[in-house]
């Protein structure tokens, strides 16, 4: 292996480590929300700093490779993709952190009826599964799996689109739920963004492996 290949392998390992951390943050956010576990929520907020540190280190490492090795072709595409994936992962980390902060802020456990009615748990599970699929696609350079993310994101979009009506119905039946309902709606909005970030990541994986730009090109993404 050339020195550049070694450097790229190191970067890849680093991205995968960051991915596991972000996945773990999102899983913990789900548990903290479901069991109203404030200690776990505080742990998530603390670990968010590690996610941020990963982002800074990856940016710096990529910058060094650009400066020292002038990468081209697949190496160049890989590093460009990593810079964007890094950014998207950091934002997913922020989302987990945001949900954890809701748990810390809330005075009491959320009304679980809201979870059921809005399909929030399904949405959470799907978000975690999508994030994990993007990681596997990245590790195995599997563009078929990366493409499957686009369809899965539609499920999150649908749950998000139906959320307002369902929340409205819940509030109508019990006005005391307003506070919880606003938290749940905010969490749904955040999880919808996880789907968008995962979709961005999938586009970057396809760009890096196949040199195809799918961004802002829905037709091409579906065709492929």
């Amino acid at each position: 292996m050339t020195q550049l290949e070694n450097e790229i392998a190191d970067i890849k390992a680093e991205v995968v480590s960051m991915w596991y951390l972000v996945e773990s943050q999102l899983k913990k956010a789900r548990t903290a929300m479901l069991h109203f576990d404030r200690d776990l929520a505080r742990e998530i907020v603390l670990k968010e700093k590690r996610v941020n540190a990963f982002e800074l280190k990856l940016d710096r490492d990529c910058e060094n490779i650009f400066a020292l090795y002038c990468p081209v072709a697949v190496d160049l595409r890989f590093l460009l993709a990593v810079l964007k994936i890094n950014n998207n992962l950091e934002r997913i980390g922020d989302i987990a952190d945001g949900i954890a902060k809701y748990v810390i802020e809330s005075l009491s456990d959320f009304d679980h009826k809201l979870f059921t009615n809005t399909e929030l748990i399904t949405m959470f599970d799907d978000s975690i599964s999508i994030l994990s699929d993007t990681r596997i696609a990245f590790e195995k350079e599997d563009t078929i799996l990366a493409r499957s993310i686009f369809k899965k994101d539609e499920v999150l979009d649908r749950i998000n689109a139906n959320a307002i009506k369902k929340i409205e119905d819940c509030i109508k039946t019990d006005l005391g739920m307003i506070n919880d309902a606003l938290y749940v709606l905010s969490i749904i909005r955040k999880l919808e963004r996880v789907g968008d970030q995962a979709k961005n990541i999938a586009e970057e994986i396809i760009f890096y492996i196949e040199a195809k730009v799918l961004k802002h090109n829905e037709e091409e993404a579906e065709k492929d």
Binding site: T2, L4, V72, A73, V74, D75, L76, R77, A211
Partner: peptide, 15 residues
């Protein structure tokens, strides 16, 4: 330099 078509070209330019 971004997307060479032939593997030999890619191998050469990426060292």
């Amino acid at each position: 330099f971004t997307n060479p078509k032939d593997t030999r070209t890619q191998n050469y330019i990426t060292g």
